[in-house]
Write a protein that binds this DNA or RNA. Structure first.
Length: 116
DNA sequence: CCGCTGACTCGCG
DNA sequence: ACGCGAGCCAGCG
């Protein structure tokens, strides 16, 4: 199990209609503070079975890769198809759409009762 | 093996 | 509220 595989495993768990931040995915993948790796992992991955579009940055905005410059509308489109609404600033309400993983989804310790 | 790069995040001004 | 700089680590040449 590579580090990236752990990241992919977490991303794959993000349910339909929900989003997660890079930092959040990193923590769930047991890689606290390594939000960048999440982005890098998604950058390198080419599989289509991953809901990569459900991963956004901490600002609630979509992060685009330079080489995918033309697919900027794609991620937003995919999210909108899941019922996620974007604000006038092209941001999503993290407080409303952020995925809150259930304890069963987690492998080890986690503070129950997410204080949102 | 050393160094650069890259879908991030947080703190400060 | 926004821009800038520093810290993180894995993959590749």
């Amino acid at each position: 199990m590579s580090t990236y595989d752990a990241i992919y495993a977490v991303v794959r768990q993000i349910p339909w209609g929900r989003v997660a931040t890079y930092g959040q995915v990193a923590e769930l993948a047991h890689l606290p503070g390594q939000a960048r790796l999440v982005g890098y992992a998604l950058f390198q991955m080419q599989r289509s079975d991953l809901p990569w579009h459900r991963v956004i940055n901490a600002k609630g905005e979509i992060s685009y890769s330079s080489f995918r410059q033309g697919a900027d509308y794609l991620q937003r489109s995919l999210l909108e198809q899941e019922g996620i609404v974007f604000s006038a600033e092209n941001k999503v309400s993290l407080k409303d759409y952020r995925w809150q993983p259930s304890v069963e989804s987690l492998v080890s310790d986690l503070s129950p009762g997410g204080s949102n």
